[in-house]
Write a protein that binds this DNA or RNA. Sequence first.
RNA 1: GGGCGGCUAGCUCAGUUGGUUAGAGCGCCUGCCUUACAAGCAGGAUGUCGGGGGUUCGAGUCCCUCGCUGCCCACCA
Length: 912
Amino acid sequence: MSRDLPKAYDPTAIEDHWAEYWVRERIFDVPTPAAGTVDPARIFTILLPPPNVTGRLHMGHMLNQTEMDILIRWHRMRGDTSLWVPGTDHAGIATQMMVERQLANEGTTRQQLGREAFVERVWEWKKEYGGAILGQMKRLGASVDWSREYFTMSDPLSRAVREAFVRLHEQGLIYRGAYIVNWCPRCQTAISDLEVIHEEQQGKLYEIRYPVVGDAKAFVTIATTRPETMLGDVAVAVNPNDARYTHLHGKKLRLPLTDREIPIVTDDWANPEFGTGAVKVTPAHDPNDFAIGQRHHLPSINVMDDTAHITVAGAYAGLDRFEARKRILADLEAHGFLVAVKDHTNSIGKCDRCKTIVEPRLSTQWFLKIQTLADKAIAAVEQGHIRFTPQQYEKTYFEWMRNIHDWCISRQLWWGHRIPAWHCAACQEITVARETPHACMHCGSANITQETDVLDTWFSSGLLPFTVFGWPEQTLDLATFYPTQLLLTGFDILFFWVARMIMLGCHFMLDVPMPDGSKRELKDAVPFREVYIHALVRDADRQKMSKTKGNVIDPIEIIRHYGTDAVRFTLASMASPGTDIAFSEARTEGYRAFANKIWNAARFIFMQIDRAKEAGIVVDPHTLPAEIIASESDPLETRWIISRLNQCAADVNQALANYRFDEAANLIYQFFWGEFCDWYLEIAKIRLDFGETADKVATTTALTTLLSVFEAALRLLSPFMPFLTEEIWHAFYDGKPPAKSIALSAYPQDNATSDGALEISMGVVQELIVTVRALRKELGVAEKSTTPVQVARCAELKDHAELIQRLARVSDMEIVPSIPDSPNKRSTYNFDVAVIYEKPIDIPAERERLTKDLAKFEKEMESKQSQLQNEGFLAKAPAKVVDGLRTRAEELTVLIEKTRAALDTLDTVGSR
RNA sequence: GGGCGGCUAGCUCAGUUGGUUAGAGCGCCUGCCUUACAAGCAGGAUGUCGGGGGUUCGAGUCCCUCGCUGCCCACCA
């Protein structure tokens, strides 16, 4: 890695190399520290939200990983023991679907294959393709500890899952029973409430009359949106206070299209306001109806099979539910039972995975009693043991947690953690055990078979914050790294994952003693201390990216084009909390330009090292002072740039502490480009005089500062642009860097206070240079030619004459007591300046500009004065504000006076 | 039916607890191939801070109201 950088910055040429280097050299591995050797406050641990093994990297992942990587690199460079644990999720349904699709292409099905062979097949698939996303992650430069990579279905994690299940069962928190669950007829499994997405839909409300038994002319009209479920009706409910139906209490109805008679029951749930006030009761297909059925001891008639085909014997048997609906409606109409069909908007539940309409259906499932877990999870946040950023998500969290229902944790899938329960054929009892039992624990029969259901994927991922560290063993890892510091993720898995981790973490870890043997309290049982929720990445038109819309931006594609560093920087700079990111390539293009800028700054600096060497001045990067401190005797720009660097470092550290990736990124950008390159580097060109007669000490000092500040800036930037900075950093040290990676060097801190007064005087120099440049431009001075200037009211500027001459193309700067008003003169609060140049300026344009300025100044002056005359303001406003206002008023007085004079002159000149 | 955001320059977004001149990037206009960088340099234009009302000495920032827009949650047939 020599200092011979190619002329153009080419990210593809460097990124693969370092991505591979970091992994190969195990730069980011964190061996478990010996007990008690690390201050817990200096440990920073995060867990990667496990992508699905089926996943391909998308912009959401990239944002998530970029943010985590910036933070973990930042902490690492600050000297914290920084551990980022990667892994993948077995993703039950998603993976099973993937392999099933593959089987379909081969003309077979999982049923034909059989469970064992199918699961074997999925494992093969996982081995073959499951690492894709982690490979992509390596390419992003994610500084994770690959030695700790986990998979939610590995042996150790599977053991932990069984342990957790068995313990919950022993604690009486897991039960099995027949309840209404959300059933996906396509996936043929139960799914949890969270996996159902509701969509508003314009549907129909059908009103159907049910004849009263024993009264040929009487009917009760019910309303339903799912007429096919009437086959499972076991009653009709009316409100006990509904006078319209009082006379029918205790009567029976004949269920149309069947020969069944069903009772009329009274139940408060029937709302007299809705429809006809009478509601059909179908306990096997509706949660409310199920509750009514329980209250009135009614039977349940399940009318559909796992694929939502009608099972009730008769005309509709074997029909798909929607086909059955059509037929039933037709038959009802034919027999005069269908009274009305009304438009009705209702929300319809669909399977999150396959978008099939979910069927609420009575089914025997395993549930986790959630209330005691939720109580602890609520307390943990209420008591501030877990902090949310942005804070508003706390509210969302509480809302959900306080209205939580028991969690259906069983799935009728083959790919997943099989529930450790065995059914006894002899006594029908269930044996729940950690290891496969040989006999039923109730009757001793050996005729037992394992439960076929598997656990919800989120059950195992909910345990990860402690299972990845070896729980249920009380390992050193667990003692060292639990709780993790931060959970960084998108809001889409706030309930699925974040909430579950909090519940399960608080529940299980409360039983694990602290490293010193004392009892663990809630504050240390939490799985993480902070949660940072990031936004959604949308396309440039703020549209949600989706495959169907075809507007998905593939990060790998963008990276190929602009480089990982530029994409990372784009995401970071746009990641302000609370708002979604409209990903714009234009922006990425801009940050690639930034990377190029840094690249070229490096080339320039390396050239100076060579030039210096030729001139006999040797500044060795390896022996630069550890701390960059300016001394009184240093030139203005040296003290200024060091002061700016320190201020920038302080601000960036502060921003990162508050998860303000955008602020941090913008601060560095502004510093590096706007201050270091635009000003300091240009000045350095003047100072780096390698000529025979040059002041070698001054040149050496300038070069030392240049190198020091640049190197510090690289470190400052490193968490954001790890590849580019790594490349340049190694080159900077001529291939012999003081550490194996810039990521292992120290992050710049605010090690000196910035010098405010100094910046003002540098500010005046800059102001003069800018003013002269503007004047020259207006006067039409040719770019290359130099012009003399006169400066009044600020003699100190003479001290910086050389600098001003070079940067503003001034041939000679003369300090004069005053400058007569002329179109060539420009005034600021600090000085008057005139460019000596014959060519007259564009008078109308100049007049327009001055008039505009004057109006602006006068308007501002007016408002300032009215404020300063306002006694209320003077009495109540803080002194700082009043003083500021007075100073500004003074400035304005000068500016107005100068502008008026300039205008007058213009008129004189103009009339000549 | 509840709840939460957003509306600031042509575009994408910043704007900390109300306080001096509302900012950035991109785009736009003008002039420069000044040997680190044309992926660049220099100079420049651009805002009734969604509408209305209120609190205050002072409002982009707080309150009320209206409008548009996005999202989350919910077992009303």
